[in-house]
Amino acid sequence: MISLPATVLDELELDALTELVNIGVSRAAASLREMVGRQVLLSVPTVKLVSRSQAVELLGQSETNRLVAVHQVFEGDITGRAMLIFPEVNSLELVRAVTGGELPLEDIIELEQEALAETGNIILNGCLATIANMLKRSLKISLPEILRGEGPEFFELAPPPEAGDVVLFLYINFSVSERDIRGYIAMLMDMPSLEALKVLLREFIERTTGHSTTATDAPL
């Protein structure tokens, strides 16, 4: 059953959110570069607002194999879970890139857990912190935890916090040492959080563009 969220973000709001996330992951890329020693490019080309079931479907469409996710909780004016999700096979690539590419496969498998946790931590923090900053709000963001599974279970995690019904679903592209790794970021939140986010985005848009949004942009 596909159900659209009652409160939606309009085009400009989504655009603003995308821009914020891109700034966030770009900063994270600069941060990662320090560790990796080679050029790191991160980009989020699209942001969608979907329901939990839609999110599971979207994941299932492109990924038939097992997934690994870095999970962090954010609390504040917006509350929810943020996950950086990779197909399990890609995570090894990521770890290899991040550890310099000289390690034997066995070592990489060993170190995957930690390396992935920290890398995911940097990226998610990049996203979330930037959003928080630009929206002039403070969040409390937890330490990372690694999850493995098929996909659906990521969206069925037990509370706290409340597993929201809304998912901000982002595609993220990683490029390190000429290796392109694709993954996803999913931010789960409940409706009140989404509404709060909308308000914050509006404020942000007005601040930066000088536009009063009600006048110029109509919701979808």
């Binding site: 941060s31 390396a115 979330l128 912190a129 409390k140 963001i141």
Partner: peptide
């Protein structure tokens, strides 16, 4: 640099960071 950035991020944005011995 990573550690000081993480501290800054914690103060400014409330972000928690992990710096593993692996990396």
């Amino acid at each position: 640099s990573r550690l000081t950035a993480a501290v800054r991020e914690a103060v400014e944005s409330g972000a928690s960071s992990l710096l593993t011995h692996t990396l």
